[in-house]
Structure formats: C-alpha cells, structure tokens
Design a protein around this nucleic acid. Sequence first.
RNA 1: GCUCCGUUGGAGAAGUGGCUUAACUCACUGCCCUCUCAAGGCAGCAUUCACGGGUUCGAAUCCCGUACGGAGUACCA
Length: 479
Amino acid sequence: MDDKKVRVRYAPSPTGYLHIGGARSALFNYLYAKKFGGDFVFRIEDTDVERNIPGAEESQLHDLIWLGIIPDESTEKPNPKYAPYRQMEKLDIYHKFAQELVSKGYAYECYCTKEELEEMKEEQLRNGVKSFKYDRRCLSLSEEEKEKYKKEGRIPSIRLKMPSNHTLKFHDLVRGDVSFNSDDIGDFVIMKSNGIPTYNFAVVVDDHLMEITHVLRGEEHLSNTPKQLQIYEYFGWEPPQFGHMTIIVNPNGKKLSKRDLNILQFMSQYRDLGYVPEAIFNFLFLLGYTDQNGQEIFTKEEAIKSFDPKRLSTSPAMFDQKKLLWVNSTYIKKMDNETYFKFIEPFVNKIEFLNNLSKERKDEISLMFKNEISYGAQIIDLLNDIIVLKTDLDDAEKEIISKESASKVCALFKEKLEKLSETNEENVKNIFNEIKNETELKGKEIYMPIRIKLTGVMHGIEMYNIIDILGKEETLKRL
RNA sequence: GCUCCGUUGGAGAAGUGGCUUAACUCACUGCCCUCUCAAGGCAGCAUUCACGGGUUCGAAUCCCGUACGGAGUACCA
C-alpha cells in the first residue's frame, strides 16, 4: 500500500461555478498530490441531472487552472485507463456493481414511492424520531410482490442493506480516529429508480476504479464516510484514506452558503475584480492551515513544501475578507512593473478620461496606484476620485477653501503653474516650496485648499501626481 | 432528538505535561513619516486558554462531566 502512487481528486458537481469552498478543497488535494509526488484528478459528479447547469463543468476546470491548481488528469485530459471522467457516462458500470451487491444479498430493491417514504418519515417524526431511517419494508419482498409492484408501474430503487451493530471506523488524516455504528445509519439508496446512482455509491465506485488513494474533503462529508466504508467492505475493496477539513464559515459562524450575498463566493467574481490568482491560492491555503514557522506568504512551491495534512485545522475557519485584501495587496506590491502593467491594464482601460493616452502614459499613471490598491478594480474608484471633481463639499471642506489664505494660495499657485512649461513632479514640488517660502504658511494650509479645489476631497495620492493626471489645462480650470 | 466534530484575543492561529510572564499574521488603537489617504517604520492590544471537577510536584496541554457552537441526518452532492 505504501508504494502505491498517490492519487487524489477534486470531483465537483456541475451545479455551479467554482466557489471558495470547492477551490479550497481542490487546493488541498492538489497540494497533497504534489507533496507526495502523486497525481491530481479532476472528475465530474453529474448524477443530479436536475441541478446540472451548462458551462459549469468547463468553468470549474478553467477557474481551477487559473488558480494554478492544474489537474494531471481531467475531463479534458483523460487517462484512458481511468476514463470516463463523468459519472453520467458510466451508468452501466454502476448498474453492474449495484447488481453485484444485490445478488450477494448486500443490497435490495425498494419499491416504495415518494409518498410512502414521506409518510414513513412523518410517522417517525410523530413518534419523536427526528432522524429518518428506512423501515426496511421492502427488504424481504417476495417475487410475487415485486411483480405486483412492477405491474403497477413502479420502478425500484436499490438500497444498501446496513449490517446491524457494526462498527465502521477509520483513521481520519486530520481528525484522527473516528467511528460510527451502523445501527445509526439507515438503509440508504445507492441506485435511484431512474437508474442513476446516488453520490455515496458513485464516489465509491469511482474512487476505487480510479485508484484514488487519499480523499481530502469538507467536514460535511464526515457522516457520509461510514456509508461509503460499508460499500467498500461489501465489495472487499480497500478504501482510500480520508481526511475531513473544516468547513468555511461566514462572520456569523455559519457555513458559507452559496446564497450568502455578503461574501463573494465565486472565483470568477474575484478574477473580475482584479484579484491575483496566486494571492487567492495563497489565501485559500491559509484558510484552515498554519505553517509550522508561521509563514503566511507562500509561492506555490513553498506551499507544497510546507503542507502537512496533520496541520490542517479541526475547527471552522472564518472567511476573513480583510485578510484576503491584505494578501492580495502584498502580491500586487510584489509584482515587477511589467507584470503590474499587464495586470492593471484592463481596469485602467475602463476609464474614459484616459482613453486617448498612450500605453506608456497609462502605465505611468497606473504606477502611482501600485501601493494604493488592494485589488485591481479599486484603481477605477481612486482615479475617478481625481478625474471626477466632487462639487458637493461638506462643511469641513467648505471651511478650508473659504479661508482668506486659501484664495491667496490658489491664486498664487495658479499664477505659478501657468508659467510652467512642464508639470512634472520636480517643478510642481518647487512651486509648493516657493509658495511656502513666500507666504510662510504651513504645508497643510497650502496643500489642502488646492487639493479640495482640484478633487473636492481631503484625501488621495500625492499632489504632483494629481496634477500630472489632470494635466495643466484641467488643473488651471479647476483652480 | 440522534450521530459525529469542535471550543486559545475582534479574525486566523502557534502551542502535544515544566523553556508560555501564551509565538506569529490580519484587523484595531496610538506614535513616527506626511498637505491628506495609502504604503512603510515603531509600539500597544488574552495575568489567561468555554465552564466545573479530577490526575500530577506541575495542565492551555491528559481524563470525566456540563455548557455552547457546527456538520450531517434525502431516490442532493
């Protein structure tokens, strides 16, 4: 077993786009594979045909690749030995295995209708039982009864027959020994009446056939594990090693829900806002994992090197958007200028005011904001704060420009600026120094009125940069 | 309800019986720099590890209870 090549997987259902939870789960599996020289497989669990949405599979895969989590095998890069990589393409295989369990007496046909099941559930509820367990009424159906049901048009599902008082235990990669009793688990459906396997059955078959050795998944799957273990046992297959990571919670301590609009969930949203894939990779890594030495900024290689599944947290991690912002901004600051220009270009291009400028000029302006922004799209707001003059001043702002010294400063500045041939950093700084000497006013009394005249706000980037962006003509107009 | 998992500061956490007067990072606060914002630099921020018992010379660390939080409890994945 030890010499078996490590194979891990990320197996989303194509019911939505790649979101934080999925990406993190993929990330840790990827790290595991790379840490131990194994392969990372991308496979699709599309058995819930009602909820599948077109395009989800592709975007899941491509967002993953964007993040740098690159599968060794995938729906687009299948290894013939393990294909197909979509569950709906291997229905016959599940069918065959399910029949095998039936013939061995480990599973049985269930002819109950949805309504009957519903009724059963309600009755159990009335009797104070809140966790529904199938009452096994179809367990020992005679052939005649089955025929009768079939004539009624009923199509059976297949349920796994759970043994009684059987301990299902496993060693969890992150939580240690965990055990369940089979009595607490009802006979669950493995093949739906529409001929499609349920998740718990399909994963087992897939993981076995694909020779998956380790499964790192969310805590929400912890209670699925004994069910799957029982299937492995019936088949006589060796189960992979499981590891259950904590869920990610929102600031209210609740599981991050896809409907939680307060938090951006999808990778595509982050991409659109100008988050750096390496930064998200890094941030995701921090979500429930701490490095031995407390390191927090990692390249992919460093993350692989640091990764140790035993150090995965056992208590839920809150999704901290401020920390993401911080991580992202450190990645932006770290970029060399060429990389930064390429990164920021699409956002700068959205600003009409700059449309006619040369690439070099746009780069120059972009650079003024490199230390200022936490994500790409932020530059749009910051630039607009300068370009679009705010006219509805608040009291504090009004007070500053209404001072006698203010109008004096503005007039003086205007006069000096007009004479300037070039409004570069040095020249503009000189003007300010001259005004300082001539008027003996404090820096604040000089800069603030001009700042407010030029932008309408009391904060922002360096004055000479503002003037540089606006240009001499526009600057004079605003004074 | 039942099953399973968890509980160290606002957040992520380090910590695996004495070196912990609890590391580090984000956030926050203050100071420096500075016209301002940001960046950067410096400093502050848990006398205490949910609570109650126990084991021990010694416990955040081991054991037992209680409380609280979470996940699951589907012919969803």
